[in-house]
Structure formats: structure tokens, C-alpha cells
Design a protein around this nucleic acid. Structure first.
Lengths: 181, 181
DNA sequence: GCTACTTTACCGTCCAGTTGGTACATTGGG
DNA sequence: CCCAATGTACCAACTGGACGGTAAAGTAGC
């Protein structure tokens, strides 16, 4: 069926818009223009703009999950392999373009339900972690640190000059290895 | 001059809008209604909507700075007192209502320059920290963790159930004390 | 009557979603 | 095997409301 591919073409266009228009607002008209379809065409495949954004988010989550699972295999057997794989996946620039993330987030401010798939994924990951490790405030703190680094990047509000951010990230990995046993 | 107080009344109204309307979009019409002034009245005091949001942000920063300085006095003499004071100020719910923060952030997605005052404050704080301590990736990581906790709260994407988040915050304070010496 | 402040009425633009189609493929009854 | 009925994919034009901003006309205090 050609349908899936059309939907993907539209989502690709939406992502390109997010990237090109500086993480600003995604509009249906812009996506229509960029994708080569008419607005009516878009709305045939995604009933509302929210549905389109949700599909974008879901695709992003699916890709993140895949990358994480790859890292999990590398780390399997080691303590906290799931959390550490998640942290590693976060750094993969292929998956999580900050500008795309930002575009979804701004829409989420007006439509909190938009992030429901993300919340579900987060809870799955939490459960997955707790299946092999005990509760640990430190672990959740490191998770928050990873989120913080992402958002600092998104908003360009990092206290650290860009050429030194790699060190901070390495420190995150190191602490994950040392603090959690 | 009465101007200052009127400006503050308008900013208060804008914050109330941010809180009541679920961190969604702040509009001039809503702020006008809430403040009791007409829209023309608002625009006399703030030339554009962006100026209004910027003023909101600046007031927020000023308040955060005050709270931080109070904590600094308590911690003065101890290592990393500035960073630790900053982390402590972050926890103060009086200052940083997540919904107000979110409202500013969503506007910032379209107007990146809006956050310039914040970026300036961040760099000041960084400098202030480096005046008494050496570079430390761990310190910046803890800062990122504090940011991450805030954003998780904003977007309701914390992996930790709300009744256990206090433990994570405590862990942040504890690590700041133990890891940095 | 000048200055600081405030209002009312209005404008232009942006944008999600609707309407009423067209073109082409699929299918089932005779 | 033909063709009418039905479904799928897509489009161009339009609608209506939200929203940022403007213009001109007040009004109150000095």
C-alpha cells in the first residue's frame, strides 16, 4: 500500500519545516508546500494538525527505542544497562534533532495530551529499568541530567561553552558507571 | 510615577493567565481582560507583546537572583556555595512557577532572542562560580540535572512518581555536597 | 492647555479546518 | 467481459475566528 509512504513523506516534510524554520511553528500550509501535497491532501491522511504532530512524535519515539535497544545489547550483562543505553541513545544526533524536538514541545504547551505517547514510553522504560535494578534516586537524577542537557541545547541556555559540552556528557556516562553498581 | 506599578499589574495579570490557562499561549487580549486595562493600554506600556514577555522574564530572573543570594549567605564559606545556592533557589516554588516558565519558553521557540536576558544571567552565574572554584564537569552536570528536573515538571514527563520526586531533589543536593569539594 | 495615560474601534494577517469537487482504481452483478 | 457503483487519494477555494498591532479620540492632573 502506498498510503504509508505518503504519510511518511508528509512527516518528513514536517520535520524539514521544523529544521528550516528554526524550530518555530509548524503550520499545515508550510507542510503542504514543502511536501508537494495540498493542505486538503494532508488532512486526508491526518485528520487534524495534532494528529500529524502526534504521528511525528510516535515515529521519533520508535526510532529512539530502536537505537536504545542496540546500545542495550552492547551493554547487556552490565549493571544498569537499560539506563545507560538510554543515556547513550540520547546523544545520538541522528535520532533527536533538537529543532524537531522543540517544534513538538511548543505544540505540546497548548496540547498537553500530545505528549501522552512519550509519557507511555517513559513509563515503559522506567519499568524496564526496575525489572533488573532497585530504586535509586541517583539513577533518576542522571536521567534528569540527560534531559537537562537536551533542553539546554534546545534553548541554547547551557552554561558551558559548546566546545566543552562533550566533557559534561562524558561525565554523565562516567557517573552512571561509577555511582550505580 | 505610577507607571511602574501599572506595569507590574499588567505583568501580574500575564502570569495569572499563564497559570490559569494551563501554561498555554498568552495573548494580549487575555492579559487585557485579566488586568482590567484595554489592549491599547497594555501596548502603551509594552510596545510589543515580545517586550511584555521579556519584562516578565526579567522580573523572574531578578527574583530568582534575590532568592539565590539569600541562599548564598547561608552557605557562604562552604565549597561551591554559589552553585549550591543556585540549586536551592531552583527548588523554591514561589519563584519559578512551572506554568509561567513554560509560557515564556513557548514564546521563546518563535523568538529565540527573548531568552537573551536569561542567557546573560546564566553566564554571570557561571563566571561567579568560576571566581571561586575550578572548572568541573560534575558541577555543570548537576546544573543540567536541576534544569532537567524543572523541565520534567513543566512537561509532566518525569519518570518518577510525584511522591518520590523529593528524594531525587535531595539526592541532587547531596551529590552537590559530596561530589564537589 | 499640555502631558501622561487610557479607551474604542478597526485592520490585516495567519491559520486550522471545511466544502465540494476530480481522477483513478476496484469490484461485483448481469 | 462490460459497466455502473463504490471507494481511495487528492485538490483548490473558501470560511471564520484568533491575534498582534494601529489610529484617533478622549480624560485627568498639573
Amino acid at each position: 500500500m502506498n498510503t504509508t509512504s505518503t504519510r511518511d513523506m508528509i512527516l518528513d516534510a514536517a520535520q524539514r519545516i521544523a529544521v528550516e524554520h528554526g524550530s518555530g511553528r509548524i503550520t499545515l500550509d508550510k507542510v503542504a508546500l514543502e511536501s508537494g501535497f495540498s493542505k486538503g491532501g494532508l488532512l486526508y491522511h491526518f485528520a487534524t494538525k495534532e494528529a500529524l504532530l502526534q504521528a511525528m512524535l510516535e515515529r521519533l519515539i520508535a526510532r529512539t527505542r530502536t537505537v536504545r535497544e542496540t546500545h542495550e545489547q552492547t551493554l547487556s550483562g552490565q549493571p544498569w544497562s537499560v539506563l545507560r543505553a538510554m543515556l547513550a541513545a540520547r546523544m545520538d544526533p541522528e535520532v533527536l534533532d533538537p529543532r524537531v524536538t522543540m517544534a513538538i514541545l511548543t505544540s505540546a504547551a497548548e496540547q498537553p495530551a500530545l505528549l501522552d505517547p512519550l509519557r507511555q514510553y517513559i513509563q515503559q522504560t522506567r519499568k524496564h529499568i526496575l525489572e533488573e535494578e532497585r530504586e535509586s534516586p541517583t539513577a533518576w537524577l542522571l536521567w534528569a541530567a540527560a534531559d537537562g542537557l537536551l533542553f539546554q541545547e534546545l534553548l541554547d541556555i547551557s552554561p558551558v561553552p559548546s566546545d566543552q559540552r562533550g566533557l559534561v556528557y562524558q561525565q554523565l556516562q562516567r557517573l552512571a558507571k561509577d555511582l550505580l553498581k
